[in-house]
């Protein structure tokens, strides 16, 4: 089951987080939740040929910038990523997958 990630947004300074924190860098502990609807762009990626136990090579991971937040996520095996690719974030079993927007 896939769903859009839920960000934790600081009510005092507006900074958004994924995953969650106990306290914002501004010191506030007042947060609200916001579903990440925006599309992002891949800023860097790697294809790991020697992944840790429990993962199959080649394992693809990337960081995408969604404007309000950057998120590290996995890429699906069939996707050949490029820098600047437009992606959407979908969470599955607690892991964000970054999927190309067609």
């Amino acid at each position: 089951m896939e769903r859009k990630p839920v960000l934790q947004v600081c009510r005092a300074c507006g900074k958004a987080y994924y995953p969650r924190k106990a306290r914002c860098y501004c010191g506030s502990t007042e947060f609200e939740e916001r579903v990440l609807e925006a599309k992002g762009r891949i800023v860097t990626f790697t294809i790991i040929h020697v992944p840790p136990a429990g993962f199959q090579p080649p394992l693809k991971v990337a960081i995408a910038d969604f404007g309000v937040v950057k998120i590290l996520g996995r890429l699906e095996e069939g996707y050949e990523p490029g820098l600047g690719d437009q992606v959407e974030a979908l969470e599955r079993d607690g892991v964000v997958f970054l999927k190309p927007v067609s």
Partner: peptide
């Protein structure tokens, strides 16, 4: 963090993410 670990990232692969970003 638990979240980072769940993606399969390790410190060596973070270095790879950093290298590609720097190079580009």
């Amino acid at each position: 963090s638990d979240y980072e670990r769940s993606t399969g990232i390790t410190l060596p692969s973070y270095a790879a993410l950093m290298a590609r970003y720097y190079m580009s």
